[in-house]
Amino acid sequence: MTFAKANDLLRLAQLAASRRLGISLEEISQEFGISHRTAQRMTSALEDNFANVVVVEDDDRRRRWRIQSPIPERLQPRQENTIEALEIAARAARDENRLRHARALEDLRDSLITRLSPRDALRSEADAEAVLSALGQVARPGPKVAMRPEVTDVLIEALRGPFKMRIVYGDTDAETRTVEPHGLLLGLRSYLVARQADRGENLRHFRLDRIHSAECLDESFPIQSGFSLNDHAAQAFGAYQDPAQYGEVVWRFLPEAAPRAAEFQFHPNQSAEYRDDGSLIVRFKAAGWLEMAWHLYQWGDKVEVLEPAGLRALVEGHARPDFPALP
């Protein structure tokens, strides 16, 4: 067995031990980027090399491989990649004022380090620090709206329930509102997606920076039937939702800008095709014309809005020919 295959087998053993229901052939294929047949060979090697492997069937009658007792710590591979990932995630959480998540990630990182031998812990920390010191965060132009940690902590607690929340929104002396949180959209400006029952069944967006106080109530509620935060977010180009603007969007990038535009994902559900003249047509369905206009301005006169007419009218006359570079 080669060293690479041995490492893969150890990693498979860790996955089989750490997942309560074990791991299936489909999950192995996806995790390691291999064929179904190669995944079968790996499970055979797992059974041949570990005595405590059990094979069970899940509710869908798929076979799953599980190791009944944890792998000895001495078989644990080096953890610098995991330590790096946890540290980066913790720093991102602190930047977004998600202090509860930051503390949990830091506790997990520290717990992982304490399980290593002193020599491996020192080496893993040193290697991770070398990478982290070389990773810089690119400053984004424009102001970044700060979120209040005391508000985000309450939001996360409410989402776990899910529980209703009482918030003061807009003006500091505004009347309280009772809302049913469905999710958070994090970005340059972050939003709470929630239903306010006294204003109808439709989901509304509340800017987190305008929530002045929040209280988690001891009252649960049913999530809107069929709700998916990813599907909900995909209805907008950015974060702003407007059902009246939702529809097909078609942009044409000129041949000199087409290669650069092809590197962008403007929307999760976009399609793109080159025309015979070398231009690039990008299509997707979304709302939020103003956020689209903000982005399109960066392309100067190298992009043309074909649809919708309202967006075309919004950007008309604002395409500059003198930008020295494309986004």
Rank of each mutant, 00 (worst) to 15 (best):
V151C: 02
A85V: 05
V53Y: 03
R140H: 11
N202G: 10
E31C: 05
A244I: 10
A89V: 10
H232D: 06
D153L: 12
I67C: 00
G136N: 06
L188I: 12
P321W: 07
P162Q: 06
W65Q: 04
R260H: 12
F264P: 04
F253T: 00
F3A: 15
R195Y: 06
D48Y: 06
D276E: 14
I71R: 01
G300P: 02
P222L: 08
K144E: 13
D95F: 14
S228D: 12
R148Q: 14
A13I: 03
H267V: 07
Q241M: 04
W294P: 00
E157L: 11
A244R: 12
A286D: 00
A134N: 11
E129I: 03
A89N: 08
Q76E: 13
L188Q: 14
R210V: 04
E291D: 09
Q137M: 11
G33C: 05
Y191L: 02
L184Y: 02
E215W: 03
R19W: 07
V53H: 03
I167L: 12
I281S: 00
V151R: 00
R94L: 15
E129D: 12
Y240A: 13
D95K: 12
L326H: 07
D127G: 05
A261V: 00
P321C: 06
E248N: 08
D120M: 14
Q30W: 06
S35G: 13
R94H: 15
A128G: 10
G310V: 06
Q79H: 07
F50K: 00
E291I: 05
S124V: 10
S225M: 08
N97H: 13
K285F: 04
V193F: 02
K5S: 12
I28V: 05
I156E: 10
E129L: 14
C216D: 03
Q235R: 13
F237K: 00
L229N: 05
E291Y: 01
T114V: 14
M165V: 04
H36Y: 11
V193I: 06
A92V: 14
A92Q: 12
V154R: 00
R207K: 14
T43S: 02
R207C: 09
R204G: 01
V305M: 04
N52A: 15
K164S: 11
H205M: 08
I223S: 11
G300R: 01
L105S: 03
A104M: 13
A102I: 09
I211V: 09
I211H: 03
D301Q: 09
V55C: 12
P118I: 10
V249C: 04
Q235D: 07
L184W: 02
Q241A: 00
R252G: 01
D120F: 11
K144G: 15
T178S: 08
G187T: 07
F50C: 03
A325S: 15
E73A: 12
Y297K: 13
Q241S: 02
L86I: 06
P308V: 03
N49D: 08
N269G: 09
R195H: 09
L188C: 08
F227M: 02
S24P: 02
C216T: 08
H267T: 09
E26Y: 05
V138P: 02
P268F: 02
